[in-house]
């Protein structure tokens, strides 16, 4: 267990999430914009989840070679489902009255998305990112198998030399990272949601 492994591990997680966001957000928006595209996109990201991690990384390694890039791509693919799904869901859930007002007042499609719909969907999107990030901490262990480094290397080594102490250390570190990430993002999420629910307290509405 060294600081190098620890930072490598974090790097993999962060890079994978950035990549997943870069791909997942546009896909989620596309799902929202086009009901026709929604089904196939959601189906694909869903199927990606069912491929065993090791197999998926193997396939990517054949294409991208051994190294961090492989594991980053792999984890990013796994992260797509919660991000795409929550982006789509969050946007769909925005109050129809707000959407109609935005449209009727002459906001263009992208303007509406950026200034109204996405800000209002953000808490739900953020929940998706949180789920993806916490999962990624665990999945990044597989980096060891494709030469990506990270805490997985220490765990893998500990298993081979049957060093319980080392194994426990690696596992505990992983759990600590996951818990810390989960708690901190949960805290942020709660704050956003509180802000939003005070915003969203619907007006007295009778029909």
């Amino acid at each position: 267990m060294t600081f190098k492994l620890f930072s490598e591990h974090l790097l993999i997680v962060v890079a994978a999430e950035v990549l997943a966001l870069a791909v997942g957000l546009p896909l989620g928006v596309l799902c929202y914009f086009s009901p026709k595209a929604r089904k196939p996109i959601l189906w694909v990201v869903d199927v990606l989840q069912t491929i065993p991690a090791l197999a998926l990384l193997g396939i990517i390694m054949v294409l991208a070679g051994a190294g961090k890039q492989t594991v980053i791509i792999g984890i990013a693919l796994y992260s797509l489902l919660p991000i795409v799904q929550n982006t789509n869901l969050g946007l769909l859930q925005v109050d129809p009255g707000v959407k109609e007002a935005a449209c009727g007042m002459g906001m263009g499609r992208m303007y509406r998305l950026i200034h109204v719909e996405f800000p209002l969907a953000f808490p739900v999107v953020f929940t998706g990112v949180r789920i993806a990030a916490v999962n990624a901490v665990g999945s990044a262990v597989f980096a060891a198998f494709v030469g990506g480094g990270g805490i997985g290397t220490a765990i893998y080594k500990a298993i081979r030399i049957q060093n319980m102490n080392m194994l426990m250390q690696g596992t505990a570190t992983l759990m600590a990272i996951a818990i810390a990430l989960d708690l901190s993002m949960g805290w942020v999420e709660a704050r956003i949601k509180r802000g939003h629910s005070s915003m969203k307290k619907a007006p007295a509405r009778r029909n």
């Binding site: 109050d95 129809p96 009255g97 959407k99 109609e100 007002a101 009727g104 969203k200």
Partner: peptide, 8 residues
């Protein structure tokens, strides 16, 4: 509109 639709 009836739903008011102010941007929260």
């Amino acid at each position: 509109i009836q739903q008011i639709g102010l941007f929260p």
